[in-house]
Design a protein around this nucleic acid. Structure first.
Lengths: 238, 238
DNA sequence: GGATGTGAAGTAGTTCACAGCC
DNA sequence: GGCTGTGAACTACTTCACATCC
């Protein structure tokens, strides 16, 4: 906890959401044997301006090399430190339906410090079945004391599920149900809502923002576009 | 297309991302027989301040009743109009793996005007199987001319899949692969990246932002980017 | 030369506070 | 009285432009 690895620098929300993207790019760059990357290249690949990249990275301390850019290995390390990838976070998934199973089976979801500890469901037909090496547990039974619970239950059930998990001492939730939940103060919840993402995209399509005007694209807070293609091609060739 | 249903009012990105939440709340409120809701109630349920609610709704025109709040039915209608729920958007899903199947089977995903037209995959073992009443088509074959493609393919494949869909005339993408894709100018892409969402949540847990400080809640992708403007500039210059 | 890091300026979004209307 | 709608103030983030350093 008392790791003086990083100034207690409070990162801004947009910065936090971009760091994982930079990290992923650095990962790919490293795999291809490139040892450094500059803010322009990183910006094109991430879909942001070079200035934004430099501001984001400057918030992690000054480790860029003037004249040549950022060392890829150091870049990865700094982001990992800032985001806490070195720590392990125990995670449970609640709801072993289609989505829950898809998440657990994905090899992209539980990475960078997140460790799956158990999967729960209410349905007797599902309890006891195996998902990605985990035997599905009865949600009414004891709950593992973890950091984060991933909620993949139906919207109608999610509030009561969250309530029970709160009594079990869980303080952070990633909620995939299309339903806002209420929690005691001091608890954290983050929402992922597919249908809203789709609706937002459709809005942009309907209004010229998409196919008409200058290319828009949005992500979890990241816009992309443009000459990035050239850089990407360069990467793919090597 | 030329529906004069709404002033050409350009909604802000954060507003757009909150409107679907309000709409969902209105839906539930209506189901329970309540006929009006005020900005404080709506704000509590949505996790935002009453002022923000009022600003968001004022952008759709003034339809609130001073003294009593917003009529639930009108609220639903106005949001539906603004977001284009009345129009139908044809959608295809590319990639019938765990995630693709989970999305297609979900009854929350394809709603509010989104209509599933076809599901594609490359894998001969998957082609021809049935998913939610759709027979999975060969991705190498002809592609239905739709508005939006939902990409549920592996990260390594997603760029080439998008490239092919561009040649088939598709202009908007919802990308679930953890990989930024590049598209010609004027195309739209929106990203959903589970692992990044989880990482952001873990960051908040690690730093006091979550369990310590005042109750945090983050909604989905508050896509805060004016980077669009810079992208346009870049385009204009080139 | 070439890229970082950063004050200063600009812009978008939120919150305050209150006039106006039901 | 109660709640909306909105100018004004404020806050947060991005972009510009350039001094700085390898």
């Amino acid at each position: 906890m008392a790791n003086p690895r990083l100034l207690k620098r409070q990162l801004s929300e947009p910065t936090i959401s971009r760091l994982p993207i930079y990290e992923r790019i650095a990962e790919g760059w490293e795999r291809r044997g490139r040892s450094s990357i500059d803010s322009t290249q990183l910006g094109e690949l991430a879909g942001v301006t070079p200035t934004t990249v430099r501001r984001d990275l400057a918030a992690l301390g000054s480790f860029g090399q003037r004249g040549s850019g950022y060392d890829v290995a150091i870049l990865k390390t700094r982001i990992a430190e800032a985001l806490g990838y070195d720590q392990e976070y125990d995670v449970i998934v609640v709801g072993a339906g289609n989505l829950g199973r898809a998440l657990v089976n994905s090899n992209n979801f539980l990475t960078r410090g997140a460790k799956l500890v158990a999967v729960y469901d209410q349905d007797p037909k599902v309890i006891g079945t195996e998902v990605a090496g985990q035997v599905v547990q009865d949600f009414q039974g004891p709950i593992a004391p973890v950091t984060v619970a991933v909620l993949c239950v139906p919207a109608a059930a999610v509030q009561s599920v969250a309530d029970r998990l709160v009594t079990q001492g869980i303080h952070a939730f990633l909620n995939f149900a299309p339903q806002v939940i209420s929690l005691p103060p001091g608890y954290a919840v983050h929402y992922v809502d597919f249908s809203i993402e789709l609706q937002i995209l459709m809005y942009h399509v309907a209004n010229g923002t998409g196919p008409l005007g200058g290319g828009v694209l949005h992500s979890l807070g990241i816009a992309t576009n443009s000459a990035r293609r050239s850089v990407q091609r360069t990467l793919e060739k090597s």
